[in-house]
Amino acid sequence: MTAAGQAAPAVDAIISIRSIAKTYASGFRALGRIDLDIRRGELFALLGPNGAGKTTLISIICGIVTPSSGTVLVDGHDTVTDYRATRSLIGLVPQELTTDAFESVWNTVAFSRRLFGKAANPAHIEKVLKDLSLWDKKDSKVMTLSGGMKRRLLIAKALSHEPRILFLDEPTAGVDVTLRAGMWDLVQSLRAFGVTIILTTHYLEEAEEMADRIGVIDKGSIILVEDKAALMRKLGRKQLTLHLAQPLGAIPAALAPYHLDLANHGADLIYSYDDKGQRGSIADLLRSLTELGIEFKDLHTTQSSLEEIFVSLVGGAR
C-alpha cells in the first residue's frame, strides 16, 4: 500500500502525515503507520502516556528523527525533499531543557532567528522576550536562568523566526501558575493570529481548555482524533445526583429501566447518562419519581473531565 492509495490530504490540512512508522536502531517500534491531518490554524492537543511516541512524531515532522517509512507534507511540501520550505514554517519547543550556557538570552534568541533564515529584527526579538516575561533577563547568561525561565527561553527561540506552525512539546512543565496563565494567553493570541499549534501536555485541564481537537496516541498508534467538544459530548459521562428527602432501602422495580445507583446509605440516587439522544429521559425519570412519590431536596449534575476520558481510553488498554 502506498501513500497514493490513501486519503488525499484534507483541503485545509497544513500538515499531512501519511503512513509514518518509526523503528529505532535498538529495534524498538516507537510508531506504527500513523495517519494524521493537522488543520490550518487549529490548536491540536496530542495526548498520550509516557513513551507513547509523541516526541518521536514531532521530531519526525521537524526533521530531527528520520522515519522508517511514510511521508509528511507541511503546507504541501515534503519534509525530506523540500526541507527548507517546511522547516522555515515550523517553530519547535522541545521537551528537554536544552539551551546554550554561556550566551546571553538576547544573543541566543537572535541566533535562532537567523538560523531559520530570517534577517535580524531586534524589534521582533524584543517583542518576543517581553511577551515571555524575559525582557529583564535579556543580558543574562542563559546558565543563570531558572528552569521555568529556560523553558520560556526555548519558546522565545521557537517564536524568533515568526513560524506559521508551532510545536509545543510539554511547554508548561516547570512553569509556575501565573506565568503558565500568561503563556496560554500568548498561545491564544498566536492562534488568533493564524498560527497552527500542536501541543503535548500531561496537564489535561490545559488541553481541555485550549484545544480545538484532541488526538490520543498510545504505544505508537493514534487511537482517537476528535473535536474536543464532540469528544466531551460523546465520551464524557454525565451524572445526575438526586439528594432524597427520605432514604431508600432499595431501588423500586419501576425504576429499573434507568439503571440507577444508590449511594450515601440510600440518601442519594444517581443516574448516569450520556448525551446520545437521551434528552427526554431525565424528564421521564423525574416524572416516574413523582408517580412513585419519591421526593428530593436537591440535585446536581457532574460531567467527567478530559482526564477521566483519557484514563478510560488508555488506562483500559494497559
Binding site: C62, Y83, A85, L92, E96, D100, A101, L115
Partner: peptide
C-alpha cells in the same frame, strides 16, 4: 553533548 543540536537539525540549513 548538550542537546542544542536539535535546533540545528530542525532548521532550514543544508
Amino acid at each position: 553533548f548538550t542537546g542544542t543540536i536539535y535546533e540545528l537539525l530542525s532548521a532550514p540549513v543544508s
